[in-house]
Simulated assay, not measured.
Amino acid sequence: MNRIFTLALVATVTSSSTVFAGTIENACNRSDRDAANRQLCGCIQDVADLTLENGDQRMAASFFSDPHRAQEIRQSDRASHESFWRRYKNFGQTAETYCRG
């Protein structure tokens, strides 16, 4: 009986991580970047969850499909974009350190 419960728990956790993948993890997994893999994308999402709000994560995720959008945001004079870019830079530096393999 314990074995069945353990197998069910493992199956639930495994499927939950796929179903509940975050915005950035999904964008990363769908990207055509050679280095992208489930482990790296999951790590990047973990860092995003610690450093970025949901709206920031949605904007950052859009950079995977439209890298030029990142450049537009970085060069924007809007105060909201400037503050986002500071948070995004922190996220990027943290992800690079934390997820380095």
Rank of each mutant, 00 (worst) to 15 (best):
R69D: 05
H68Y: 12
R3V: 13
S17P: 11
H81K: 05
T14M: 12
R100G: 14
A95K: 02
S76L: 01
G55M: 06
D34M: 14
R100K: 11
S31V: 00
T23H: 03
Q75A: 06
F63C: 06
C43H: 00
F63D: 05
T94R: 10
N26W: 05
Q39R: 11
I44H: 02
D34T: 12
W85H: 08
T6C: 14
A95T: 02
R69W: 06
E25P: 03
H81M: 08
H68W: 13
S76V: 00
D34L: 12
S62N: 14
A8L: 10
C41D: 05
S15K: 11
R87M: 04
R86T: 14
T23A: 06
A21D: 05
H68K: 14
L52C: 02
C43M: 01
E82R: 07
V19I: 10
I73G: 00
L9M: 09
N2E: 13
T12H: 09
E82L: 08
G92I: 09
T94Y: 07
F5C: 10
F64W: 02
V19R: 08
R69V: 01
C28H: 01
A35E: 15
F64T: 01
T12L: 13
A27T: 07
T18R: 10
T6L: 14
L50K: 15
C41K: 03
A70D: 02
A11M: 04
T12A: 15
R100V: 07
A60Y: 07
D34G: 15
D32S: 14
D32C: 09
E82T: 10
R38I: 13
R33K: 15
A79Q: 10
S15P: 04
C28V: 02
Q75S: 05
E53Q: 12
I4F: 12
E25Y: 05
D34I: 12
S80H: 05
S15R: 09
E82M: 07
V47Y: 04
S65A: 11
R33A: 15
S80I: 11
S15L: 12
L9Q: 07
I24L: 01
T6P: 10
S31M: 00
F64Q: 02
A11I: 01
N29H: 10
E25W: 03
L40H: 04
D49A: 05
A36W: 09
L50T: 12
N37V: 00
L50P: 07
L40S: 01
